[in-house]
């Protein structure tokens, strides 16, 4: 269940939306009488998410060039610890990018499995993953306390 929640969280980046998604997915599975396993739960969560996205027109993937220039608000982020900065940084990725990262890094999906899931060539998945990680690292580095202070002073 918690793995399902984390997957849903990677899609929504919002606790309440993620819990709602898992609840809907569990309800759908229970209506069918199972099966109760992680891949099926993930698939059900993804289907519910896509349905919700179609309803709310939320399925948007930000172009790389635009997103990399997005700025974090100038507040007291200097004091944020790594988890807070990671939260902010992941929030700047698109839902699809977070999903790809989560399934690859946390769940250990192979590039082939991800290519089947996203219906993209394996090479595209690999280069996309590389690009997303590079972008995430860039966002994290630019939010490091020392660099943010220097940026705000300079």
């Amino acid at each position: 269940m918690q793995r399902g929640f984390r997957y849903a969280y990677s899609l929504t980046h919002n606790r309440m939306d993620a819990e709602e998604l898992v609840q809907e997915a569990c309800y759908a599975i229970s209506r069918l009488g199972g099966p109760w396993n992680v891949p099926y739960l993930f698939r059900s969560i993804r289907n519910r998410y896509i349905d919700a996205g179609r309803r709310r027109n939320l399925l948007q993937v930000e172009p790389f060039s635009e997103a990399i220039h997005s700025e974090m608000p100038d507040d007291d982020l200097v004091l944020m610890d790594f988890d807070d900065r990671m939260d902010e940084a992941l929030g700047q990725l698109s839902d699809g990018e977070r999903e790809l990262l989560f399934l690859s890094v946390v769940e250990g999906y192979t590039a082939r499995e991800l290519s089947e899931l996203t219906d993209s060539p394996r090479g595209t998945v690999l280069s996309r993953l590389h690009r997303i990680k590079g972008r995430l690292r860039h966002i994290l580095e630019s939010s490091e306390p020392g660099k943010r202070e220097a940026a705000s002073n300079g």
């Binding site: 269940m1 918690q2 929640f5 984390r6 969280y9 990677s10 606790r15 993620a18 819990e19 898992v22 790594f82 988890d83 990671m86 939260d87 992941l90 990262l101 989560f102 890094v105 946390v106 990680k133 995430l136 994290l140």
Partner: peptide, 13 residues
């Protein structure tokens, strides 16, 4: 990757 793993590992329903 470790940071991402730690971040999502701390998220619980």
């Amino acid at each position: 990757d470790q940071g991402i793993g730690r971040f999502y590992g701390s998220k619980n329903m």
